[in-house]
Write a protein that binds this DNA or RNA. Structure first.
Length: 492
RNA sequence: GGCGACAUAGCCAAGCGGUAAGGCAGGGGUCUGCAAAACCCCGAUCCCCGGUUCGAAUCCGGGUGUCGCCUCCA
């Protein structure tokens, strides 16, 4: 498996530090407002990475932090009238609920900065003792000049950073690029006691402290958006490696590109933010995932209604294929010999291969998705054959479902839950209705046949007559959202 | 001003030296009582200009354009 490493600027062969175990730290959010699509991209991407690594046999230990001590939280706290930590907790929970609805499997741990102040203070004390940090008037700063490799992640030198001069002027700092490890408390702000007086941690140190605590001084992958490369991750390396002397702190730095909208960066000031909640209210979670995965994680993704529309259609196509296979599996017709259909078998093997080669090549999800669609086309093309070979249908369904479940963009109909509140009784009633309708069809009583189909449609049951029999599935009566995969065939 | 990324059919998007995956949309067929689903056929020489090479969308140089970072930010 090859992974692009920001540190070296190249794709590298991936090998975990410990055999069979992959340790991942993903930079999470600062919970001070509802999360938007830009937050959903890394959440879904890392979920897929995790699923794939587990799929190929690794044990994954992944954590994602919440920065719950921060200027923005303090500001939002004042305007919302909620204590800072409560406000952060509220939005953190909201975020977790939303990504859960997006099908993201929970990570092992979501550590919060506020709960690791002790570890942070210990780390700062060591940095001071080692001459990498200094205290000035209650603040503690990291000395960038004390870490000769400063800039190695973002590929720039201290000299290159001066010209732009977008550096805050702070008389107290020894070097303009020195950054705060600890900030002296200001009135009204949350603060903790420390050897340097009351105060709070700087932004970057929490990640160094928490990753060290839960993953060790050197771990496999560290993720985050590209905008975090500098200064956040550059500073993390400096702190962690200066603190422990262990290098590298992170073996593979993996950064995702951002989500834009109409070619512009999504930001509150431009007023073009689309929240995860809004997305979930409007589109099926599966389609949101397909959309987010339709571009490689290292290329910017432009949000658009058209893009979502395409993703919705794509998901429907996938689910229809899965549902059909599920219906064929349940077919009780006897298998006429264990024959194999060559073109199908070839397509299946090729799809499997392409899927894995794509995922192994720096998590190329668009390539993996293409492999899935290739297979779906072949499967669809041989529906009649599959309908009379349930064992083969089950076999291909297994394979297709495995691929699709790594991406989380469709369900195995055999495992899917029925529609909310639906019981087996509903299924039986629909089947009964369709059997009666079938009699009408045989008598060419199209008026009755069409009326039944229309009535069922109003109830959210989509009826389709095809060459392999009549199928039905549960849909959302308002939208096209396929809720359950009750595809059952009524034989002609 | 510095650092970096990207530019492929109407839209989205793979490709990493051997003559362009996939999805959506569109057109034409097949199947079908109708509808739907599905299948088949149709579309790009890869921003521009040079260069390297037997051969480049893929490598190098120069343009043009877009975007990101350099300050909080997924």
């Amino acid at each position: 498996m090859r992974v692009f490493n920001t540190l070296t600027g190249r794709k590298e062969e991936f090998t975990p530090g410990e055999r069979g175990l992959v340790k991942i730290y993903v930079c999470g959010i600062t919970p001070y407002a509802p999360s938007h699509i830009g937050h959903a991209r890394p959440a879904v991407f890392w979920d897929v990475v995790r699923r794939y690594l587990e799929y190929v046999g690794y044990t994954v230990r992944a954590i994602q932090n919440f920065t719950d001590i921060d200027d923005k939280i303090i500001a939002a706290s004042a305007s919302e009238g909620l204590p800072p930590l409560e406000l952060a907790d509220k939005y953190a929970r909201q975020y977790l609920n939303e990504i859960s609805e997006l099908g993201v499997k929970p990570m092992q741990l979501y550590p919060k900065a506020s709960e690791h102040v002790g570890e942070i203070i210990t780390m700062i004390e060591t940095l001071i003792a080692k001459g990498h940090a200094y205290e000035v008037g209650g603040d503690v700063y990291f000395s960038v000049k004390s870490f000769e490799e400063y800039g190695k992640l973002s590929h720039r030198t201290l000299e290159e950073m001066k010209p732009g001069a977008r550096v805050e002027i702070n008389e107290m700092k020894e070097h303009p690029m020195d950054f705060a490890l600890w900030k002296a408390a200001k009135p009204g702000e949350p603060s903790w006691p420390s050897p340097w007086g009351n105060g709070r941690p700087g932004w970057h140190i929490e990640c160094s402290a928490m990753s060290a605590k839960y993953l060790g001084l050197s771990f496999d992958m560290h993720g985050g958006g590209t905008e975090l490369i500098f200064p956040h991750h550059e500073n993390e390396i400096a702190q962690s490696e200066a603190f422990s002397g262990v290098k590298p702190m992170v073996r593979y730095w993996v950064h995702n590109e951002l989500v834009n909208i109409r070619g512009e960066k999504m930001s509150k000031s431009l007023g073009n933010v689309i929240t995860i909640r809004e997305m979930l209210n409007k589109f099926p979670a599966r389609a949101i995932r397909l959309f987010l995965l339709s571009a490689h994680y290292r290329t910017p993704l432009n949000f658009s209604e058209e893009g979502m529309e395409a993703a919705i259609r794509g998901c429907e196509r996938l689910q229809t294929a899965l549902d059909n296979l599920g219906a064929f599996c349940r077919d009780s017709k006897p298998e006429p010999g264990g024959s194999v259909l060559e073109p199908l078998e070839d397509a299946y093997e090729k799809a499997q291969l392409t899927f894995h080669e794509s995922m192994q090549d720096d998590f190329n999800t668009p390539g993996a998705i293409a492999a899935v669609f290739d297979l779906v086309r072949e499967l669809n093309a041989h529906q009649e054959w599959l309908a009379s070979h349930p064992a083969s249908a089950a076999n291909y369904l297994d394979g297709l479902a495995r691929m699709v479940s790594v991406l989380g963009i469709a369900d195995d109909p055999r495992k899917a839950q029925g529609g909310a509140g639906d019981s087996a009784l509903v299924g039986e009633l629909v089947n009964l209705t369709l059997e009666l309708r079938q009699k009408a069809r045989q008598e060419k009583d199209w008026a009755t046949s069409d009326a039944v189909r229309a009535r069922l449609g109003k109830l959210g049951i989509l009826v389709e007559d095809g060459p392999t029999g009549t199928k039905w599935k549960r849909i959302n009566p308002d939208g096209g959202d396929v809720r359950a995969s009750g595809a059952t065939r009524i034989h002609a």
